[in-house]
């Protein structure tokens, strides 16, 4: 790893971090697990002059479940989510995504906050957050704001986070009937298609579905037409289920790459969304 020269700071409070951000401006970058940032620095595609490590700031890690709401600190590692019995119960969709993300080394370093703040079009959690209708808590010098997952993601490597803000956590209502399934890129392991589904059931029929999709477009999206079509569907009726999931990527500018062209990816989006629905009903 031969990056350009940089300085390193490890503040012990958010205020200290904000001061450093203000001082160094666009030359500074926040460092969480480093598993998106450092590979970019290695390739010299990112050349920050100051790295501000969030690891020394207390209160940014952990999973809490209170009154049916799950809150997760931004610096919580993928491995922690992947091993959480609480998550497995209250939000299998996130538990499964954490287990499907990267490899043990990546999971042991990377964080949920870093993954979401990075805005990677292949971020597994992005689909999950949309399906969970999660709320993001963002802190800045002037105070804290809350933002819906759906408006946080703007484009490829683009979110509403300003360079002087820190994502401090996410929260969402527990969603026991939920699932994440992923069609992984054979090399990178990132999703070619990642489908997150949260269901409310009325007997054996779906009363309400929220479907988040990642890896397909330039950022994650809710498959609105599929959500509508799923209402009232009995997942055991495969024809009805597949019919409802058809056109899940309609209207999306589907990415094309050697591992999956746009046409194929759209078709796989339908398949994986229907598989996620089935998986969510089994939960």
């Amino acid at each position: 790893m031969i990056p350009t020269k940089f300085e390193y700071a490890k503040p012990s409070s958010l205020d200290e971090a904000f001061a450093l951000l203000a001082e160094h401006g666009p030359d500074a970058k926040l460092l969480a697990g480093g598993h998106s940032l450092i590979p970019m620095m290695k390739l010299r595609l990112a050349e920050p002059e100051m790295l501000i490590d969030l690891a020394g700031i207390p209160g940014l890690t952990g999973i809490t479940v209170r009154d049916g709401r799950v809150s997760i600190g931004a610096m919580t590692k993928h491995a922690t989510l992947a091993a959480s019995e609480e998550l497995r119960q209250h939000a299998p969709v996130l538990f499964e995504a954490a287990n499907a993300l990267g490899d043990p080394q990546v999971r042991n370093r990377g964080t949920i906050g870093g993954a979401l703040a990075n805005g990677d079009p292949g971020c597994d959690y992005a689909a999950v957050m949309l399906a969970l209708d999660a709320t993001f808590t963002v802190a800045g010098k002037g105070g804290t704001r809350e933002e819906a997952a759906s408006s946080f993601m703007v484009g490829m490597f683009e979110t509403t986070l300003s360079p002087e803000e820190v994502l401090v956590g996410v929260s969402f209502a527990a969603a026991p009937a939920s699932a994440y399934v992923k069609y992984a890129h054979p090399a990178s392991g990132y999703p070619l298609v990642g489908a997150a589904v949260v269901l409310s059931m009325n007997g054996d029929a779906i009363s309400e579905a929220r479907v988040g999709v990642t890896g397909v477009g330039d950022h994650a999206f809710r498959a609105g037409s599929v959500e509508k079509a799923l209402a009232g569907v009995r997942p055991s009726d495969r024809t009805a289920l597949e019919g409802a999931c058809a056109g899940s990527a309609a209207g999306v500018d589907v990415r094309s790459e050697p591992a999956a062209g746009a046409g194929y990816r759209s078709a796989m989006c339908d398949v994986y969304v229907s598989r996620a629905v089935l998986a969510a009903t089994r939960g």
Binding site: A187, S188, G189, Y190
Partner: peptide, 26 residues
């Protein structure tokens, strides 16, 4: 048989030049 392929585009850039794109078996 299943995964690996070194691809040069028409201009001669190696488009499968990293483990993000070039699939050695996991």
């Amino acid at each position: 048989a299943l995964f690996e392929e070194a691809v040069y585009d028409e201009s001669g850039q190696l488009t499968s030049g990293s483990f993000m794109d070039y699939a050695i078996p996991h």
